[in-house]
C-alpha cells in the first residue's frame, strides 16, 4: 500500500475544482452525448495521460469507494499503476482488480468483459472528445454542427471510405449517435466494446483533460454506431483465434509477436485470470443482439 502524501487535499484537487467538475458532470448526464466545457486543472500526471478521466474520478471518489484502474484492459500496465499510485496516495481508498467488486472503474481504451452493474461507474479517459474532428479541424465549426445537428460531413466521409476501400477505415474510436441527438466519440475503445454503451446498466462518464471536455452516457440510453443499411457496423474479427492463457474464444484479444510465432491473449487480464480458474465464468452478453 502506498503511503498517503501529506499536505494535499483529499483526492488532491481543491474543493472548488471538484465542485465545478461535479456541476459539469450533472449537466453532461442531463444532456447525453453533449460535450460540456470545463476548466481543466493541471495535475502531476502529464496532459494526454488520463488527466480528464482522473479529474472526474477525483471528484467522484469518497473514502468508501473501491477503485479499479485499467489501461488497454490490464490492471498492471505502467500507466494504470502510475494513476493508481497517485489516487492511493491522495485518498487511501481500496484498489481492486476485480471488475465486479469496484464501485468506480477508470479505464483507457477498453470496457471490461464482464457485465457492469447499475451501482458502478465507468470513467473513460478521452484524448479527442470531438468525433467530428476527423472532418473538421475548427472547434467553432464543430460546435455549430452539433448545435444544428448538421452531421452531413461525417456521413459523407464514411460513405467515401466505403467507395474507396470497400470498408470503413476507422478502427477504434468509432463514432456513435447518442439518444438520437448527438454524435459522440466513445474514446479509443475498440469497435468490439461499442455495443456495450447501448442500453447499458452502468453510467459512463468521459473526461478529456487536455481538450477540457466532459460528457456522459447514462444507463439505458440508446447508443448506435454510425452505419449504412447496406454496410453494417462490424466489430473486430477474432475468428479462429483463442486466448493462449485461458482458451477463451469470445473475448477481445491482444496480438503478440514472438520470435517464432504469433499468439493471442485476453486484453482484459483480470477476466482472463478468472476464466483461467473457472472456464464457465460469464462475460457480458449482448441482449440487444438476441
Amino acid at each position: 500500500m502506498t503511503e498517503m502524501v501529506k499536505g494535499y487535499n483529499f483526492a488532491f484537487i481543491d474543493e472548488y475544482a471538484k465542485r465545478e467538475i461535479r456541476r459539469k458532470v450533472l449537466k453532461a448526464v442531463s444532456i447525453p452525448g453533449y460535450q460540456v466545457p470545463f476548466g481543466s486543472r493541471e495535475l502531476p500526471i502529464a496532459r494526454g495521460w488520463g488527466t480528464g478521466g482522473l479529474q472526474i474520478t477525483l471528484s467522484l471518489i469518497g473514502q468508501k469507494d473501491i477503485l479499479k484502474i485499467i489501461d488497454q484492459g490490464s490492471d498492471d500496465s505502467v500507466n494504470a499503476v502510475n494513476i493508481k499510485r497517485f489516487i492511493e496516495a491522495t485518498t487511501g481508498v481500496f484498489i481492486t482488480s476485480d471488475t465486479l467488486k469496484a464501485t468506480i472503474i477508470q479505464t483507457r481504451h477498453r470496457i471490461p468483459e464482464e457485465e457492469l452493474g447499475d451501482d458502478q461507474i465507468l470513467v473513460l479517459q478521452v484524448p479527442y472528445p470531438e468525433p467530428l474532428r476527423i472532418v473538421e479541424p475548427e472547434e467553432k465549426e464543430t460546435r455549430r454542427m452539433h448545435a444544428e445537428m448538421d452531421y452531413a460531413k461525417i456521413w459523407v466521409f464514411l460513405y467515401e471510405n466505403i467507395v474507396k476501400w470497400k470498408e470503413i477505415t476507422i478502427g477504434a474510436r468509432y463514432p456513435v449517435m447518442v439518444a438520437g441527438r448527438y454524435i459522440m466519440d466513445p474514446s479509443p475503445i475498440p469497435r468490439y466494446d461499442v455495443p456495450r454503451l447501448n442500453n447499458a446498466r452502468t453510467l459512463y462518464l468521459f473526461g478529456a483533460g487536455r481538450e477540457k471536455r466532459i460528457y456522459a452516457v447514462p444507463p439505458f440510453t440508446e447508443v448506435k454506431p454510425l452505419e449504412f443499411e447496406d454496410h453494417r457496423f462490424r466489430i473486430e474479427n477474432f475468428k479462429g483465434k483463442a486466448c493462449e492463457l485461458c482458451a477463451s474464444t469470445d473475448t477481445f484479444l491482444d496480438e503478440i509477436i514472438l520470435d517464432d510465432k504469433r499468439m493471442y491473449t485476453c486484453s482484459d487480464t483480470s477476466f482472463c485470470k478468472k476464466r483461467g480458474n473457472n472456464p464457465r465464468v460469464l462475460k457480458y452478453i449482448d441482449r440487444n443482439q438476441q
Binding site: 495521460w49 488497454q72 491482444d254
Partner: peptide, 25 residues
C-alpha cells in the same frame, strides 16, 4: 507546452488495443 508536450509523450503509452482495431481494418 504542458498540453502539447504531454500529448506528444502519450504516444509512448501502450496503444495495442487501438492498433489491433486498425490491423483488423
Amino acid at each position: 507546452s504542458i498540453e502539447s508536450g504531454g500529448f506528444t509523450a502519450h504516444w509512448k503509452l501502450p496503444h495495442y488495443v487501438t492498433f489491433q482495431s486498425d490491423l483488423d481494418r
